[in-house]
């Protein structure tokens, strides 16, 4: 009976959830040998198109793909602007003209994480909810600034009690503008549940980053896991 009373609230929250939230949320992971903690979307695309086999800091990288599924489709659409068929044909050109090889393809998040953890330079992608033991998660920057921004003070967002009780979680994606001094100038919600997003924005606005020569805009993913 108590649960029935919560029904309108659940319906309200579902309606609030943006359409884009239906797309699988993706997290970029890398072997710890990859020295950077952030990579631009453009650089990530170059790595997965085998145009780059090293990052600007010189560390070797190699792409690892999921075979199929919503996370795979979402990654291709978001970061490579290609369909699975397009990408497959792209790799075939490389393979059959002697200009590259077919990247490793694996069937599940767990397999990707395990492979990336054990393979020097490997970069892959998994569902935002996947465990990431033994690998590092890379932040995606917009590529306008090559400067890496390290968080010095991190405030954890408040998890709204009702959503937690209802098992509503997920990843909130934010675009964060950081001043040269390290304070957060602006935060914009890119995707995710808007109530969780509000909480994430409030927290991230208090974060402090290391100083840098110029203003930086990066993308930050904030996970909300109702069952930690």
């Amino acid at each position: 009976m108590k649960n029935l009373r919560l029904l309108p609230l659940v319906a309200f929250l579902v309606l609030l959830a943006p359409v884009r939230a239906r797309a699988a949320q993706v997290k970029i992971i890398a072997n710890p040998s990859v020295s950077t903690d952030a990579i631009s979307g453009r650089e990530l695309k170059s790595v997965f198109l085998e145009e780059k086999n090293s990052l600007s800091d010189g560390s070797h990288v190699e792409p690892v793909l999921l075979k199929s599924g919503p996370v795979h489709e979402s990654f291709l659409r978001q970061y490579l602007s290609r369909t699975d068929d397009d990408l497959r044909n792209y790799y075939r050109v490389l393979v059959f003209t002697g200009r590259g090889s077919m990247p490793k393809e694996l069937g599940s998040d767990a397999e990707v994480v395990a492979y990336v953890a054990g393979r020097k330079g490997a970069i892959g992608y998994v569902s935002a909810e996947a465990g990431v033991d033994g690998v590092k998660t890379l932040a995606i920057t917009d590529g306008r600034s090559p400067v890496e921004r390290r968080v010095i003070t991190r405030i954890e967002p408040e998890y709204p009690e009702t959503l937690k009780r209802l098992n509503i979680g997920g990843i909130v994606r934010l675009q964060v503008t950081i001043a040269p001094k390290g304070n957060v100038e602006n935060v914009q919600l890119l995707g995710g549940n808007p109530i969780l997003g509000e909480s994430a924005v409030a927290a991230v606005k208090q974060w402090v980053y290391a100083t840098a020569p110029s203003r930086t805009r990066i993308e930050v993913s904030v996970p909300f896991n109702p069952q930690p």
């Binding site: 170059s46 145009e51 780059k52 086999n53 090293s54 044909n89 075939r92 050109v93 059959f96 003209t97 002697g98 200009r99």
Partner: peptide, 30 residues
Amino acid sequence: YRFKSWFGIRGGKVKTTLGLFTDTQDLDFL
């Protein structure tokens, strides 16, 4: 041998890069 993304060398019998499809003209499935 790819030194950097902006500089690599390859040798041997190499497919010639000429226009959009010279190097893939035999690959019907593409």
